[in-house]
Lab assay of single mutants.
Amino acid sequence: TETVELHKLKLAELKQECLARGLETKGIKQDLIHRLQAYLEEHAE
């Protein structure tokens, strides 16, 4: 999932992505995007 794609997701979809990775789901859309980006960078293959 790339940065551009995360911005296209709806808030509910971002929350699902966070939940699937065991991440916090509180906060505004930008918080969730930032959290997912950090996770994806950390776990990049």
Results as ranks from 00 to 15, higher is better:
23 L>C: 00
9 L>K: 10
8 K>N: 15
25 T>E: 06
22 G>N: 05
11 L>V: 09
26 K>P: 02
17 E>G: 01
6 L>T: 05
27 G>W: 00
45 E>R: 11
12 A>L: 08
1 T>S: 11
13 E>P: 00
26 K>W: 13
10 K>F: 01
18 C>W: 00
24 E>Q: 12
31 D>C: 06
43 H>R: 12
30 Q>K: 15
7 H>G: 11
8 K>V: 04
42 E>H: 15
26 K>G: 14
10 K>E: 13
24 E>Y: 03
16 Q>I: 06
44 A>L: 07
32 L>W: 00
21 R>A: 04
12 A>T: 11
45 E>Y: 02
35 R>C: 02
30 Q>N: 15
21 R>S: 01
10 K>G: 13
14 L>A: 01
45 E>W: 06
23 L>N: 01
7 H>V: 05
4 V>T: 14
9 L>P: 01
4 V>M: 14
27 G>D: 01
38 A>S: 11
24 E>P: 11
3 T>H: 07
21 R>K: 10
31 D>S: 04
11 L>M: 13
40 L>K: 04
24 E>W: 01
13 E>L: 03
37 Q>T: 08
19 L>E: 14
6 L>C: 05
9 L>V: 02
5 E>P: 15
34 H>K: 05
3 T>N: 13
17 E>H: 07
42 E>Y: 05
3 T>K: 15
6 L>I: 04
1 T>M: 09
30 Q>I: 14
24 E>G: 07
35 R>D: 03
5 E>N: 11
28 I>H: 14
36 L>D: 02
3 T>A: 10
43 H>F: 04
21 R>I: 01
6 L>W: 12
39 Y>Q: 06
23 L>T: 00
9 L>W: 08
13 E>G: 03
45 E>A: 12
38 A>Q: 11
28 I>C: 15
15 K>G: 01
8 K>S: 12
1 T>A: 10
7 H>K: 06
16 Q>M: 10
7 H>W: 06
16 Q>F: 02
8 K>F: 03
16 Q>W: 06
28 I>T: 14
9 L>S: 03
23 L>H: 01
18 C>M: 03
37 Q>F: 03
18 C>S: 00
5 E>D: 13
43 H>G: 10
30 Q>V: 10
20 A>H: 02
41 E>D: 13
20 A>W: 04
32 L>F: 00
7 H>S: 14
25 T>Q: 04
16 Q>G: 06
15 K>A: 05
12 A>I: 09
44 A>E: 14
4 V>D: 08
3 T>E: 13
30 Q>S: 12
23 L>R: 00
40 L>C: 06
10 K>T: 15
41 E>C: 09
20 A>M: 13
11 L>H: 05
16 Q>H: 08
40 L>P: 12
21 R>E: 00
20 A>V: 11
27 G>M: 00
6 L>S: 02
13 E>C: 05
5 E>F: 09
22 G>L: 01
36 L>Y: 02
2 E>S: 10
16 Q>S: 08
13 E>W: 01
2 E>M: 14
44 A>I: 06
2 E>Q: 13
17 E>L: 05
15 K>D: 01
42 E>N: 11
4 V>S: 15
12 A>W: 09
33 I>M: 07
36 L>K: 03
11 L>K: 10
12 A>N: 10
44 A>K: 10
12 A>H: 14
32 L>P: 01
27 G>K: 00
34 H>V: 12
36 L>F: 02
17 E>A: 06
11 L>I: 10
13 E>K: 07
28 I>Q: 15
15 K>L: 04
45 E>M: 08
25 T>C: 10
44 A>T: 14
14 L>M: 01
16 Q>R: 10
8 K>Y: 07
39 Y>W: 13
27 G>E: 01
7 H>E: 14
31 D>L: 03
21 R>V: 04
38 A>H: 15
10 K>M: 06
1 T>F: 10
30 Q>M: 11
35 R>S: 05
22 G>T: 00
3 T>S: 10
2 E>F: 15
16 Q>L: 09
29 K>C: 03
40 L>E: 15
5 E>S: 10
40 L>N: 15
15 K>R: 12
34 H>G: 13
6 L>F: 02
4 V>N: 09
36 L>G: 03
17 E>P: 01
18 C>R: 00
32 L>D: 03
10 K>L: 05
42 E>A: 11
21 R>F: 05
40 L>M: 14
20 A>D: 07
